[in-house]
Computed example of a mutant assay.
Amino acid sequence: MRHIISILVENEPGVLSRVAGLFSGRGFNIETLNVAPTLTPGLSIMTITTHGDEQIIEQIIKQLRKLVTTLKVVDLSEASSVEREMMLLRVDAEGTKRAEILRIVDIFRCKVVDVSPEELIIEVTGEQGKLTALINLLQRYGIKEVARTGAVALRRGMQG
């Protein structure tokens, strides 16, 4: 099962490598990783997506909590949360393809952020399923390049 783990950490050198080392040292895979500073100076939030059964995820969380620089660890998969990912796609858009691609962009509420005579760069934000569906639709036009941020997520409402 896919899990999204949110980790509040002290923003100091080596924290990312210790967290990544914890995963790799135990044979766990990080599917996506996103790190950014919080509003509190000196603190960052790491959002990691990984796969595993409940027992494996419980072990990961316990190990993460043992790290000195870790202040809080939450499995957002267990709570009601909002998850988003941002993706940029470079798509071949020559000739008659362009109008069809622009219709798809409109349906998916994407933005065209760069235009050239031969291609478009499209920005899309949403859940993983939306991004996958867009990729599947645009593949027939020729996707030249994809860049994705990985998941970011927050718990909904007043869940502590």
Rank of each mutant, 00 (worst) to 15 (best):
L16M: 15
M1G: 10
T96H: 10
L154Q: 06
A20N: 08
I135L: 10
E78L: 13
G142Q: 05
T132Y: 03
I7E: 02
K66E: 05
L67E: 02
T96A: 11
V15K: 01
E100Y: 03
I56L: 14
A36E: 00
A153F: 06
G14S: 11
M86K: 08
E123P: 02
Q159D: 11
P37L: 04
S44K: 04
I57K: 00
E78H: 08
T149M: 00
I107P: 05
L138S: 08
Q128I: 15
L16D: 01
A36P: 01
S6H: 01
R65S: 15
E85Q: 04
G27S: 10
E10C: 07
V113K: 06
M1Y: 09
V124H: 00
T40W: 03
V105D: 01
G27P: 06
F28E: 06
V35P: 00
I57L: 14
E54K: 09
G142D: 10
M46E: 07
G14Y: 10
G160Y: 07
L8H: 09
A147H: 05
D106G: 12
D114K: 08
S6R: 02
L89F: 05
V146A: 06
T32S: 15
M86F: 15
Q55G: 06
D92K: 11
L16I: 15
R109E: 11
E100Q: 14
R84C: 04
S44C: 06
A93P: 00
T70N: 02
Q63H: 05
L120W: 05
T149E: 04
L33P: 01
G21A: 12
I57D: 05
R65Y: 08
G150A: 02
A36V: 03
R109P: 04
S6Y: 04
E127V: 15
E83T: 14
L33F: 14
H51D: 13
H3W: 02
V68K: 09
G157D: 07
Y141W: 03
A151S: 07
R109H: 15
G95E: 05
S77Q: 09
T50N: 05
V15Y: 04
S80N: 12
G27Q: 07
K144T: 09
P41I: 10
R65G: 09
K144M: 13
Q63V: 03
V74M: 01
S17G: 07
V68F: 12
R103Q: 15
I30W: 07
G27M: 11
D92L: 10
S80R: 10
